[in-house]
Design a protein around this nucleic acid. Structure first.
Lengths: 133, 133, 133, 133
DNA sequence: GTGGTCTAGACCACG
DNA sequence: GTGGTCTAGACCACC
């Protein structure tokens, strides 16, 4: 469970934690009933304030992803993988929709959008290949 | 000059205004030397706080898109169309990049992204066809 | 909008705020679209830390009771009265169920429970009559 | 000596144990001088952390309900039945009071409360009838 | 002015 | 050890 937190990202830190935990579960990196790192550990690992972690974990509890086991920590719920896999696509889809909506309202051609998408995919592919090497 | 403002969009309202004015100029919906609606009018039309319009217009002046004509209001500069046409795709691309970046970080397959894009394009096409009829 | 906060109540302060706002809406003391006191005001009024109020208000937003209007404050949603009226009874019912469940599991007679309830109602009636006089 | 522990109940687990032991003594399910299950056994049976059982038993010793018999475990004291029978209704009443108090503070009608009570009694009756059959 | 986020540090109940 | 709550005070973006 390693997190990549970027404090100057626009996206709030607690939200970054929430998302990455969700993705980790969707990917199977975190298994059902497994414990998420303790608040204090996660705070230390990610170099953020414990309260920020608390908030992220609370959000995950509200979403039914984690549940608190008194005195022993927070565990991944049985429904979490299903939820997270669904959420993962919804989060991307939602942002994608908003971009494409803007494009549509401003008469950007569909093919232009497709080109932009391909260019970005290309761009990302190269970056990920670099980081592997 | 009709604006589509979505207050619960994540994107600040003033920025939504800025972007849509830029798009309007790029599309030719706003011509050089044409006056943009007065702060008061724009605020009323778009159901937005006048201060927010002020801020958007200030931003547009800083970008060299609008210039103030003493006593008569704000007009589109001569350079604006060139500028706006140049950044038209960049504005979309910038947002697209951040979405795809997140997807990439979370091991979403490229083809899955392409599918989502196509689905959204489909979705938008239908909406625009409906609104025309 | 006056709150009665008891910091040594067992019930967390933020939860007390949440409940009382919900009850105020259920009772009609807070109307739809009306603004709830600003975070800072509520903090001053209730003599609690602003962050505690923030948390309570955030919870109310998650429940769909309040919605944030950028830069202008938090307003009661249109669905709030319905939700709150439902919630009001549910909260009481839930606690009642838990008590009665315990009683049942320990072979307390139904009539004994009814007597206890009547005694408490009596007790409360007198207290409220006193406070009015 | 079977315990019904609900870890997500609000009431701390150790307190649930304490209450249920007291009820058991009041009902005669646990007799004077009878030994309560060992910490280890009770922890295993009820799927609870041994430390939690320790704490519950300590509380019961402080209340004079249990006393430690060197080398053999904890036994019900001679005074326990009297004590427990006396507080049997009080334990229920205490919780009942706090519920009704809240209801009162929020202008829930007395008759509405009586209805909820009857509904819950009905509910419990059915459940217990089912479990017998 | 508004809400939103974050840090720092304290205290508590629970296991 | 765990999570949960609270305070205090700071900074930010937005209206």
């Amino acid at each position: 469970m390693i997190l990549h937190i970027d404090p100057s990202n626009g996206i709030p830190i607690y939200e970054q934690i929430v998302r990455q935990v969700k993705f980790a579960i969707a990917n199977g990196a975190l298994q059902v009933a497994e414990h998420v790192p303790s608040v204090r550990d996660m705070a230390r690992i990610s170099a953020v304030n414990p309260n920020t972690v608390v908030r992220a974990y609370r959000e995950l509890q509200n979403d039914g992803i984690l549940k608190s086991i008194r005195g022993t920590g927070l565990a991944v719920t049985a429904e979490a993988p299903t939820l997270c896999r669904r959420i993962r696509l919804e989060m991307i889809q939602q942002r994608l929709r908003s971009v494409i909506e803007e494009a549509a309202q401003n008469q950007v051609d569909w093919d232009e959008i497709r080109q932009l998408v391909e260019r970005e995919i290309q761009h990302q592919s190269e970056r990920s290949r670099e980081s592997k090497s």
